[in-house]
């Protein structure tokens, strides 16, 4: 199952994009409850969103973003059938991509 959920809603000629990514976002300061060892850093550092193969958002983030990062963006315009693609990459070089069509 994909780690990304995208929802879009058109309001007054704008398109609201809501994105939710499932990710632990460990900041390297928490201890494992059983072994009491430090959990190493594991966080998303780059997030890219494209609309019809054109990059509209490039975002860089650190460990201060909460677990399971959630974002809302407002797109100027946006028509039915636009393809929104979201890609994330984390510090351990994992990545995932999800496509969404605006309705």
């Amino acid at each position: 199952m994909s780690s990304i959920k995208i929802r879009s809603k058109r309001v007054n000629g704008k398109t609201e994009l809501r994105t939710l990514i499932t990710h632990p976002m460990e900041n390297g300061l928490n201890h494992d409850k059983k072994t009491n060892e430090l959990i190493p850093e594991h966080y998303i550092n780059t997030l890219t969103i494209t609309r019809n193969d054109q990059i509209i958002i490039t975002s860089y983030m650190g460990t201060s973003i909460s677990k399971d990062p959630f974002f809302i963006f407002m797109l100027n315009g946006g028509t039915e059938g636009d393809t929104i693609t979201l890609t994330w990459k984390d510090n351990l070089d994992n990545s995932d991509t999800e496509k969404h069509t605006v309705v």
Partner: peptide, 28 residues
């Protein structure tokens, strides 16, 4: 940015002109 966090910079969003200057997220 959050001044007192160990990592002060939370995130940077580079927005293209196609987007409204608006962003919403959750912080620690």
């Amino acid at each position: 940015l959050v001044e007192q966090n160990t990592v002060p910079l939370v995130a940077t969003f580079e927005l293209s002109p196609a987007l409204e200057p608006f962003v919403s997220t959750r912080l620690k």
